[in-house]
Design a protein around this nucleic acid. Structure first.
Ligand SMILES: [Mn+2]
Ligand SMILES: [Mn+2]
Ligand SMILES: [Zn+2]
Ligand SMILES: [Zn+2]
Lengths: 139, 139
DNA sequence: CCTCCAGTTGCAAATTATTTGCATCTACAC
DNA sequence: GTGTAGATGCAAATAATTTGCAACTGGAGG
């Protein structure tokens, strides 16, 4: 489905800067930090500002156009989401390439690792939410 | 096994500051940010410095005494590791309490969620390592 | 015990990452 | 076209993390 429509539906404007960010991430085919995104996007739109990057990372996440992930060393990365449903990622510590797979934890990774040839050196699996007590507090 | 021994084995000194950090995290029974850790530790050792916190987070991770995790909103948290083998966490977005469980992804979470009463609102599962190409590059 | 020195700390300052206020601008509904 | 709520640029504030360096100290060895 088209981007313009999903933006309109959410009451979010499709500005030139946002198009630049989306294109930059889509064409890069890799995950990058906010800093890298700024640098890359600057080429297509020289006056783009860092606050625009950060503000739009939130916007694009909420529209579902980008994914956020970490690189395993404390850096936050962003990547184009490309119509995918809920999924997870293999993040290369060396080149930053991300390989997404569409099943949620719980299922053996062996097949994905074999298929992709990815060699895992570490991983992270976290569930966020509310514990039994806090769950009550919020009602 | 005792801490003193594992420190000695790694050629790492067991300083008063490190004892304070370990005690602080162990007694807290929750995960906390570097800033919170600094604040808490300062009570037991007033002159402790932020650079000592950050430098020792690395040290204590390498000795296996603490775990690093994120709270799902971009903050990095640290918790006492307490003899546990490889495991994962449920991190409460409200109180910061962490509930660790000892099986690695791949297995249904249903049982843990039922047992703990934890209500998930999101999760993260990431595998770090080297992709097929980069794997070759490193040999 | 005492000595000695590599490892560690405190401090201050540098970096890096992220957020915010505000005046100006612009996408787009009408 | 016009009006306006939402978005941007800019500059400055905050927050988070790292570093250089001189002073200090844990603990191995005598
Ligand atoms: Mn998932
Ligand atoms: Mn695991
Ligand atoms: Zn790679
Ligand atoms: Zn809780």
């Amino acid at each position: 489905m088209d981007i313009e429509k999903s933006f309109r539906e959410k009451g979010v404007r499709l500005t030139h800067q946002r198009r630049v960010l989306i294109d930059t991430l889509r064409d890069a085919h890799r995950a990058m930090t906010a800093q890298e995104l700024y640098k890359e996007a600057s080429m297509a739109w020289p006056h783009i500002n860092f606050s625009t990057i950060y503000r739009n990372i939130e916007t694009l996440k909420s529209v579902g156009l980008i994914c956020e992930m970490t690189d395993g060393t404390g850096n936050t990365l962003f990547a184009y989401r490309d119509e995918e449903e809920h999924h997870h990622h293999l993040v290369c510590k060396n080149c930053g390439k991300t390989i997404s797979f569409d099943f949620c934890p719980l299922i053996e990774l062996k097949q994905v690792l074999d298929e992709t040839g990815f060699m895992p050196t570490g991983h992270r699996f976290e569930v966020y939410g509310y514990c039994k007590e806090c769950r009550k507090d919020r009602l």
